[in-house]
């Protein structure tokens, strides 16, 4: 009887909806603690540079790798699609616009949710289950100031930087591909690139990246902080951090497109 009740679809849906609401509530709680911890510059200030290096600088290689190959593929697919019906210099337009508006921020965001979000969740999760976070509290440290603030700030500051580098790399890769494989010239590519370019595009990309940096780091911290149980719990938190932050990135992406474009 009990199992039948537990397998009831209404029960399951209702249950997971309630769980989700409760999770969002707890995330809000951590967000409030984090905001309150912001004035404690003395605690997080000296930890920020290290986190900026770890979250930002160390993420550059993977972000550039992804962007470069995306740039190559986009140039090739654009010329394949245009097949003479559209002037070839539009390859530059397509590569530029999509890299800046969409693929630079989103692909980098998704890659970093795997790299950065997972590592934050695993690190803080381990600290939670080995009582290191409790130890911090007993030593009169605010864990939000010591652990969350430097990571979230580093994410907000460094994601746009990484995204800009990745986007530039993607466009450069598209340009080189156009020269080498599509028999285009540099002026042709540049003409296409400039055609529909707006400075606002870059601002849009930066806003997106900021929000992705906030998403990935705060969700990583959240799942790390709420980890329970031993090694298994840490694994679960890590997976959840990646899945949830990837989903939130995609939802936010649509949200920004709908509201800002």
């Amino acid at each position: 009887m009990k199992t039948r009740f537990l397998l009831n679809p209404f029960y399951l849906v209702g249950r997971s909806a309630l769980d989700t609401v409760a999770q969002i509530g707890r995330w809000g709680g951590l967000a409030m603690d984090t905001l309150r911890a912001l004035p404690q510059v003395g605690t997080w200030g000296r930890l920020l540079p290290g986190q900026m290096a770890r979250i930002g600088v160390d993420s550059v290689p993977i972000a550039l790798f992804i962007a470069a190959f995306t740039g190559v593929v986009m140039a090739l697919q654009a010329s394949y699609t245009f097949t003479g019906a559209v002037p070839l210099y539009f390859v530059g337009t397509l590569v530029g616009k999509t890299m800046i508006l969409e693929l630079g921020p989103v692909l980098t965001g998704l890659a970093l949710s795997g790299r950065v979000g997972a590592s934050i969740a695993a690190e803080l999760g381990t600290m939670r289950v080995t009582e290191q976070i409790d130890a911090l509290e007993t030593m009169a440290y605010d864990p939000a100031a010591y652990l969350v603030v430097p990571r979230v700030l580093a994410g907000i500051i460094m994601f746009p930087v990484v995204v800009i580098l990745a986007t530039a790399t993607g466009i450069a890769a598209g340009w080189l591909t156009s020269l080498q494989l599509l028999d285009m010239s540099t002026p042709e590519f540049m003409k296409g690139l400039r055609l529909f370019f707006l400075p606002w595009d870059v601002q849009f990309a930066v806003i997106k990246s900021l929000s992705f940096g906030l998403t990935v780091t705060s969700i990583g911290c959240f799942f790390g902080f709420t980890t329970r149980g031993g090694a298994e719990g840490v694994g679960l938190s890590t997976t959840r951090a990646v899945v949830v932050s990837s989903m939130v990135i995609l939802v936010l992406d649509a949200f920004w497109a709908a509201t800002l474009l």
Binding site: M127, E131, Q132, D134, A135, L136
Partner: peptide
């Protein structure tokens, strides 16, 4: 703490 809880 039981398992020392040193910061890794």
């Amino acid at each position: 703490f039981q398992f020392a809880a040193l910061f890794d």
